[in-house]
């Protein structure tokens, strides 16, 4: 018999219900303008050197490529509830970069939930996205594989 802490069991219950309600094909569009504060937080999370390599020839500060994405947890995940129900974990990522993004530039994202599946007790979503600048040029695209929450169903004994 597998014993699951009560807090985790509640997280799994919420995740499973949320996962069941997610519809493959659901789409989200959002616009974002990255600020110095956004970059500062990313730098703190990753420890990269900034501006370092992120300076254009004309001296403008550029968005670190790792920041260009639609967060799967923010768009299709759970934002409230027990800790292990919220957010989730990236398990794979595909990115294509096409144009640099300058700090302060507006980026429009179009994202879609393209698949969902269970594996090893975790609940996964695939989110495909494209990002465009103010002139409509694609600046990048990607596919993110991500878990819904960080809890998993107990394995059968």
């Amino acid at each position: 018999m597998t014993v699951v802490p009560a807090a985790t069991a509640e997280a799994v219950r919420l995740i499973e219900a949320h996962f069941a309600a997610l519809e493959v094909g659901a789409r989200v569009a959002l616009e974002r303008t990255y600020t110095e504060a956004d970059v500062a937080e990313y730098v703190e999370r990753t420890g990269i050197e900034y501006p370092g390599q992120h300076v254009a020839d004309d001296g403008a500060h550029l968005l670190p490529p790792g920041m260009l994405l639609v967060g799967p947890a923010r768009t299709f995940g759970i934002l409230e509830g027990p800790p292990l129900a919220r957010g989730g974990l990236f398990t794979a990522a595909t990115r294509r970069y096409r144009r640099p993004v300058r700090l302060g530039e507006s980026v429009r994202y179009e994202a879609a939930l393209t698949d969902k599946f269970e594996r090893g007790g975790y609940f996964y979503i695939l989110v495909a996205w494209h990002a465009f600048d103010a002139e409509g040029h694609e600046v990048g695209s990607g596919v993110e594989e991500h878990t819904v929450g960080s809890a998993r169903k107990p394995r059968a004994s």
């Binding site: 990269i48 992120h54 254009a56 490529p65 990115r95 294509r96 970069y97 640099p100």
Partner: peptide, 23 residues
């Protein structure tokens, strides 16, 4: 991811921002 992309930027420079692909 940041470790890998910084390494790619170091070696490919600005081209990583226009032609870089990673999986």
């Amino acid at each position: 991811f940041a470790r890998i992309t910084e390494l790619m930027l170091e070696h490919f420079g600005a081209h990583w921002r226009t032609h870089g692909e990673i999986d």
